[in-house]
């Protein structure tokens, strides 16, 4: 996926918006986390709430809560990244995606950052 076509949360998740949105961790964040060695994914069918924890990514050093950028229902999870967490480092925007979600509130997307805004945001961080 092209980073410019994605939206970003301030907690460093990316989301490809759509009827079935795709969520992952930004390249910046995976780099800051270091080697990812464990990924805990939500269950398909589970409800996720905007800005609430719905997955966990762990590097050797620490655990990071993954917050859902929007509210909705989980429709798919990436079993490949659970089996091989290093995918998240190698391919954060493609093979390392985490879950798919059916958004329930279009307004949720309004507070998300564009690629340009996210670039500015991480420079300030």
């Amino acid at each position: 996926m092209k980073p410019e076509e994605l939206k970003y949360a301030k907690s460093h998740e990316w989301i490809k918006l759509g009827d079935e949105a795709v969520v992952g961790v930004s390249d910046y964040a995976q780099h800051e986390m270091g080697d990812v060695v464990f990924v805990e994914l939500p269950k398909v069918g589970q409800k996720a709430e905007k800005e609430k924890q719905c997955a966990v990514v762990e590097s050797v050093k620490s655990a990071f809560d993954i917050l859902s950028p929007v509210s909705g229902t989980i429709t798919a999870v990436n079993e490949a990244v659970a089996a091989d967490p290093a995918l998240l480092n190698q391919s954060p925007l493609d093979e390392g995606w985490l879950f798919k979600i059916k958004p329930e509130n279009p307004a949720d997307a309004e507070t998300l950052l564009t690629w340009e805004q996210y670039q500015v945001f991480i420079k300030q961080a």
Binding site: G34, V60, K61, N89
Partner: peptide
């Protein structure tokens, strides 16, 4: 330094 090229590597 915590790491240079990655802890696992």
């Amino acid at each position: 330094p915590m790491e240079f090229t990655g802890i696992v590597k």
